[in-house]
Nucleic acid binder design. Structure first.
Lengths: 346, 346
DNA sequence: CTGTTAGCGCGTTCAA
DNA sequence: TTGAACGCGCTAACAG
């Protein structure tokens, strides 16, 4: 409104100054702020008045250095905040953390193992009470209990072999299997695959589900129909273009994640909008990950749906079970969240 | 891998223990970790070895209680992490913060002023060096410099009257004006409006742009065509349904945000998919906020596009200008980010 | 180049 | 019911 429009560090009032203004000792201020146990009500009023007058905030950092005092912080490391999937995931984590009076410190790793290492080290230095990590890659050393100096860890969405931590992942194999099955049941025999490389946990598992469905149907995989490694919408479009330009193109495509799905559909749209008319038969799509406006697509669409927010909630629940000592100490829990196959447009 | 699968607080090694193991004083450890200035290289090696052996992490909280030592934390308060728009915004903030070696502490307000108040108080208690806030509502008291004890503040996406803080917002009025103009230019005369209530900053401004375009064209606003207050996709669909069911329905609709756009299009899709055939003319859509797969829609679509991530970056830049003392102390800066009208499908 | 002293803001412990 | 002393982990400032 007026004033010097916040600038400069602006010295921060401390308990001592509040105490002086209220005419009591720092201890009385501390006690009042802690709930007022064993402080005369009238004194409390004086203290709170002084707090208000000075705009005093308790220094949570100073507070947390004393042993036994927790920081109230949960560290969260995700790979890509710009992906709505992870935004919802973080929302779920935040929701449960708030219920337990904890705040989350969020970092983005951008799928870079180096940044992940650094981020986790920093979070530990900030005394987070626990960590929830969507791991990038398969490196396990920086996720070992020793490296984390015992900070409870929950892996989310992806697991890492060699890391003995609680984890909550999706039913990737089953979802991919059932998704691919719907294509087979519809009579498709040439089914393309768009997804992640197999060095990524989910990429590996979803491809496995795809394979399993094909094998069961007695179909041999055609390597020409498999495109892996596209991370974003643009490269996914290119991969889809290659599939559609094959001499013997697929009649349907299984897309293993949201980004590949959008890219594939954009390519379909591009062909539809190109004035050439004649586009021939367009492939049906099965998408692991739901997406908005799926029902508006010009081709048959089925999604393997799941709840990112609930995944976040569940990860947080696992963590708080540990923090509150309600989980069996020695036993690692791996939870698989269900996926639902939904025919959006036949 | 093995071990007691992280449990219990697990006592944390301190400088003292590292010092003892390395056979030096705590100060030497501190100096080594601070860059090694004035420490013999061989001693540094011993120290780092001990650090590694003990799994020592410097306690950033203890570090930051000392005056002059910054916390390295930037507080970010956003309204809805589940909205991809804000996810990208946060990503932009994080990106710039990382460049300056800062971490972000992220909180979700859920459009609840009470939670916003509480969140900001907590962030200040954690000694954040600065705040970036997407404000909920028009309450200004908790955003005053006194309440923030001088912590630099940047408002993003929305501004608040009566708060003298740097702000970065969108060209809401201009974008809405130009978006509506494309409809008028295409010959539309009955143009519906879906958007936020006018008590919300962006709701107010985007409606103003819509109004301005209509007035300029000599068209009087029909209150029946204006629906405000829908916050999510479901209620937006209902509002759209009401518009389309009017005796004299609009031939086009201006949607003031992403959520309303998706809801409106879903309603159009529902009518298209209902087997009744005969759906009559479908309204053209102009959407403030881009959305994926816009080119696949069965009706003409124009978007008023902008870059959420860049908005986040710009907000962070304003903040760091203040923190680094590179901004003129007394002067408030309000930046309007440009919007681009793009015809996706005529 | 290295160690000692002192103190950051707070809350536990003990004494009044 | 209140206060004084002490120490949490860390690092400037000042010896040495």
């Amino acid at each position: 409104m007026d004033s010097a429009a916040q600038s400069s560090p602006a010295r921060q009032p401390t308990v001592k100054e509040v105490a002086k203004l209220a005419g009591v000792s720092p201890m009385t201020v501390s006690r009042t702020l802690a709930g007022g146990k064993n402080v005369r009500p009238e004194v409390q009023d004086r203290v709170l008045e002084a707090v208000h007058a000075l705009g005093y905030y308790r220094n949570e950092n100073a507070r947390s250095i004393r042993p036994g005092q927790a920081s109230g912080l949960i560290g969260v490391a995700i790979t890509n905040l710009g992906n709505p999937y992870y935004g919802n995931f973080a929302l779920g984590v935040e929701e449960v953390a708030a219920q337990y009076g904890r705040r989350i410190v969020l970092g983005n790793t951008g799928e870079d193992p180096g940044r992940e290492r650094q981020l986790i080290a920093d979070l530990i230095g900030r005394q987070v009470e626990g960590l929830i990590v969507v791991p990038t890659g398969d490196q396990a050393t920086h996720l070992q209990p020793e490296s984390l100096r015992g900070t409870p860890l929950v892996l989310a969405s992806r697991s890492v072999t060699g890391v003995a931590a609680d984890a909550v992942v999706l039913d990737d194999v089953g979802g991919a299997y059932r998704g691919t099955r719907t294509l087979l049941d519809a009579g498709h025999r040439r089914i393309g695959y768009l997804g992640n490389v197999t060095s990524v946990f989910t990429g590996r598992r979803r491809y496995e589900g795809y394979l399993r469905a094909l094998e069961e149907a007695g179909i041999e995989v055609d390597p020409d129909l498999v495109r892996r490694g596209q991370q974003d919408v643009e490269t996914a479009s290119v991969a889809m273009r290659e599939l559609m330009d094959l001499a013997d193109p697929p009649t349907a495509v299984f897309s293993a994640n949201n980004r590949n799905t959008i890219g594939a559909l954009k390519e379909i749209g591009a062909r539809l909008n190109s004035a050439d008319g004649e586009v021939g038969a367009l492939p049906a799509i099965v998408s692991f990950d739901d997406f908005e406006l799926a029902e508006m697509m010009p081709v048959p669409v089925t999604v393997v749906d799941h709840d990112a927010r609930e995944l976040g909630r569940e990860a947080a629940r696992l963590l708080f079970d540990r923090l509150l000592g309600e989980a069996e100490p020695g036993r690692i829990r791996e939870i698989e969240m269900p996926t639902q196959v939904r025919v959006v447009r036949a």
